[in-house]
Design a protein around this nucleic acid. Structure first.
Lengths: 333, 333
DNA sequence: ATGAAAGCGCTAACAT
DNA sequence: ATGTTAGCGCTTTCAT
């Protein structure tokens, strides 16, 4: 592979000047600049990333901490994040973490080894050791779609959004409402809070614990399990709020398998508004998270931090919106 | 950040010996080894990846060439590939390519800069320049879920699988069958070949071109467009074969919007058997691609190539299986 | 505006 | 078994 010395030799110039041209420094004569550019073009030379990384003590890589289950929601959000990071000149590398937390150590080790310039966390890590490292190493990072007090983050107001979603059901006349959520993320808890708040305000706060089932993962499979569990407890309800669309999809499956019609017998509301929500039968009513904005904000906020333009203490809030489709209908008790 | 010299100083040993311990070389005395290990543990030292990359002329990274649309099928396959690559000690980095091919140059530049140890291609690049570079640079690579004559690959027999899928419809009594596919990938063409072969064998090969619609991307959205186009041409059919599940989901949406019941009025078959196929209403009949095997084979074949254990000329074929669910039913003309 | 030289953190060849 | 040394490809002083 052709390197900077090869170019220097061909041009009869020192490597230092080649470097200057590559990095767009001003103090190079136009003639030499043109010559070098021509040579680079001809030879197809591309600077060796590893060498630059070493001397500049940067990796030009941003790590994405994400759960290994990597659902449709995360996939969509990632696409937007990636696009913006690329436009800022970063590469992107996944740091997978399993839900049970057993791999958080491995993730930390990979962090130290790869040394990304920054980190975007789409998955909520529990280990305090992890956050200690982030602080100690002063590694720029931002959490997306959830927040951790005192750290930069971009997310919607989960509790308020859940409140609105459940209120939509209440306004349709539903009173006996169930919820499926997960403990994995703090937003699962916040969405549950919004759920209870809405119930409370409507004066239908009965059997608090029986209304809610907590499952392990935000997947269609666990949505199905959760719904089955709720059905075992009681069939006396007319609406279900799922903490994510994936859970809603699984819940709808379980309801259908038991002969319930949606929305005639049971209304279903999801959360996230993933792409497929609009392709389901019936189309799923859901809370829209603005992926494009969240992705862009996460990337550009991180970029600012990395390039030292960080203003400090940002906890960005993205707007959400209830998208009403076919899976919710008037209560017809 | 603590480096190898720091460890050496603390231990009163030369950096070379530290390096030997880190890399598990045998010729180190047990006492020194233990001392070094202890120090590494204490200090939290992790070797600097960039420095190793430079001197070893390796990146310990495998590139994944994937389309920027990055659908559910690719997401699922990627998860398996990633898992295995990690177990072999590789990092993973995406090389996104847009469907229109405009970014193939950028992808090539990134390739030269990052210098991955190998490449797994889930997306079919057209540019011959790209393949020329692969050959010239002798970069190990393998194509997954499609094949390119003369190059290592792992994939199912798309034509045979499509043939079986369509035959399933024919055995159910369907004669007027439509197909939605895409030109983007060669497998879209091969699946169309299987479709026509099955029709031909059943003696229902009429209006060849009208039976098939080609759309731009393998997405739900384009599946919907494709189906609308078919409906515009004629409503006289009883079954649809979609080249991917995503297309099938979009097609089902379009059919439902026009009042068709599935499978009572129209049977639908997909291809890939993505996770969600079993959660749709109705559950989607589909050809199962064995993600776990394809992912494992792709990763381990590449690993063999990288470590010089490549036996040459492998064109691996993975088994497929028709999974019959609820979206296909007897023709009830 | 340009070149010479040092050095980033690591490994490997070569001594001993 | 261990240390010394050179060098991977690049950027960046520091001269000039």
């Amino acid at each position: 592979m052709v390197n900077i010395k090869d170019i220097a030799k061909k041009a009869g110039i020192s490597p230092a000047t080649i470097s200057r041209v590559i990095n767009g420094k001003s103090n190079v004569s136009p003639e030499k600049r043109d010559l070098v550019l021509k040579l680079i073009e001809e030879t197809g030379y591309v600077p060796n990333q590893a060498a630059r990384n070493m001397v500049l003590r940067r990796s030009f890589t941003v790590g994405i901490v994400i759960s290994d289950t990597f659902n449709m929601f995360q996939r969509q959000l990632f696409s937007f994040i990636e696009r913006h990071l690329t436009s800022f000149g970063y590469h992107t590398m996944f740091f997978f973490v399993t839900f049970d937390g057993s791999s958080e150590d491995a993730c930390l080790a990979k962090l130290k080894s790869v040394k990304p310039d920054g980190l975007i966390m789409i998955h909520e890590i529990r280990s305090p050791v992890f956050y200690e490292y982030l602080e100690r190493s002063r590694l720029p990072f931002i959490t997306a779609t959830f927040s951790r007090p005192g750290f930069p983050s971009i997310h919607v107001d989960d509790e308020a959004a859940a409140f609105d979603a459940v209120n939509h059901l209440i306004n349709l006349g539903h009173r006996k409402i169930r919820m499926i959520s997960s403990e994995g993320f703090s937003c699962g808890l916040q969405r549950a809070d919004g759920f209870f708040k809405a119930l409370e305000q409507a004066g239908v706060m009965r059997n608090e614990k029986d209304n809610l089932v907590m499952v392990r993962h935000y997947t269609t499979e666990f949505g199905m399990y959760g719904m089955r569990e709720l059905l075992l407890r009681s069939r006396d309800f007319s609406a279900v709020f799922a903490a994510t669309d994936e859970l809603a999809i699984g819940a709808m499956r379980a309801l259908r398998d038991e002969g319930f019609r949606i929305p005639e017998d049971v209304s279903v509301v999801g959360f996230d508004d993933i792409e497929i929500a609009d392709y389901l039968m019936p189309r799923l009513t859901s809370i829209r998270q603005p992926f494009p904005e969240i992705g862009e904000q996460a990337a550009s906020s991180l970029h600012k931090q990395i390039s030292g333009k960080y203003e400090g203490g940002l906890d960005l809030t993205a707007p959400y919106r209830l998208v009403i489709r076919e899976s919710t209908a008037l209560y017809s008790g």
